[in-house]
């Protein structure tokens, strides 16, 4: 059991999350209800979508910090077109189009022009936010139409339309990474030169990863607008860093090539449940960052120590030589 936890970052995180929820449940009866799960899920949606978008980008050993700005840009596109009387399907398509265009610009800068991704997306982070502020003149967009807000309201079995969309997105990424081409994304980040050498279209892979991040950020933007019913001019600001933190917590390596969808989901849920429980415990909101940060550090530290201990043991086992040497080598030879 302990072994399994130590080998598996996701399992550790899952147990910590469950432990936190149980502890809060003990302290505040009534917390452990299906309703709470539903609240956590819907509170985490925007973060989940942004994280799912950045995930493939990080797998290719790049990074995208412009997610929050793309979210804002898409939300504004949606809000302005809806308030101008454009039909909702068209408006949503336009918002998605804005995300695709923004992601394509990021991808073009990184994959085609060869700009380091951190520089490129830091640039577009400001650029997209600027475009958004200019189009709205710095005003908030309010009075979004009722049909949009319905997308964010719980309709089926405690889930909203956007909640279902997010669940589908999780499934899609999971299936994709299990496919042959999904593996290409992982290996590109693992060793780009090797991937190129084996004839993989690494530039196209990187480009498409950024486009995907743009699309998911705009879905997050639509979700955001639907959930709160207006678009402030700071919409999505800073969410990319929270998303990246959640990814790292979920075992996604910033060096590329390592990570799983389960890790992303549990990382996001961990972050959201901490925020939600703090609200439930009526701890003032300004404590959120401190407690969240401390938990993040704690989990990473424990996880790291366990990993080191385990590696030392594996190493010892690998090199255990002595009386049984000849028999073990023979076994290896037989296996060959």
């Amino acid at each position: 059991m302990l072994e399994r936890i130590a080998r598996d970052r996701i399992a550790t995180l899952f147990l910590v999350t469950v432990a936190v929820l149980l502890a809060v449940g003990l302290a505040a009866p009534g917390f452990l209800a299906p309703r709470t799960a539903s609240i956590i899920w819907s509170n985490g949606l925007v973060l989940m979508l942004v994280a799912l978008g950045i995930f493939p980008v990080i797998l290719t050993r790049n990074i995208d910090v412009s997610g929050g700005s793309i979210l804002g840009l898409s939300a504004v596109t949606l809000g302005l077109s809806l308030n101008a009387g454009i039909a909702m399907p068209v408006a949503i398509s336009m918002a998605l189009g804005a995300g695709i265009a923004a992601g394509a610009l990021n991808g073009f800068l990184v994959a085609v022009l060869g700009v380091p991704s951190i520089v490129a997306t830091l640039g577009t982070l400001g650029l997209f936010r600027g475009v958004m502020l200019i189009t709205t003149g710095g005003e908030w967009i309010e009075d979004l139409p009722e049909p949009l807000k319905m997308l964010g309201a719980r309709s089926f079995a405690g889930l909203s339309v956007v909640g279902i969309v997010a669940a589908v997105a999780i499934l899609v990424v999971w299936l994709f990474l299990r496919s042959r081409r999904g593996r290409w994304v992982m290996v590109t980040g693992d060793n780009r030169a090797a991937a190129r050498h084996l004839g993989l279209p690494v530039k196209r892979i990187e480009f498409l990863a950024f486009v995907w991040a743009g699309v998911m950020a705009s879905v997050a933007g639509i979700t955001f607008a639907a959930q709160i019913g207006f678009v402030p001019n700071q919409a999505g600001s800073g969410i990319e860093l929270r998303a990246i933190a959640a990814l790292v917590l979920g075992g996604v390596s910033l060096l590329g090539g390592v990570g799983s969808v389960a890790g992303v989901v549990i990382g996001v849920i961990f972050f959201t449940s901490i925020d939600t429980t703090l609200v439930f415990l009526k701890i003032p909101a300004y404590w959120n960052d401190l407690i969240g940060g401390a938990m993040l550090l704690g989990v990473l530290l424990i996880d790291g120590r366990l990993r080191i201990a385990l590696e030392a043991r594996d190493r010892a086992a690998r090199y255990r030589r002595g009386d049984q040497t000849s028999s073990t080598t023979r076994k290896l030879e037989d296996a060959a």
Binding site: R183, M186, N191, A194, L198, G199, L200, G257
Partner: peptide, 30 residues
């Protein structure tokens, strides 16, 4: 990619390895 499609493969001097993938995946990528 084109050269491989046309039937060429270069086994380089310094092995190109994907460290986080299994041996099987390493061989079969692409």
């Amino acid at each position: 990619a084109q050269a491989q499609a046309m039937g060429l493969y270069l086994v380089p001097q310094e092995a190109h390895i994907f460290p986080n993938q299994s041996v099987l995946e390493n061989i079969c990528v692409g």
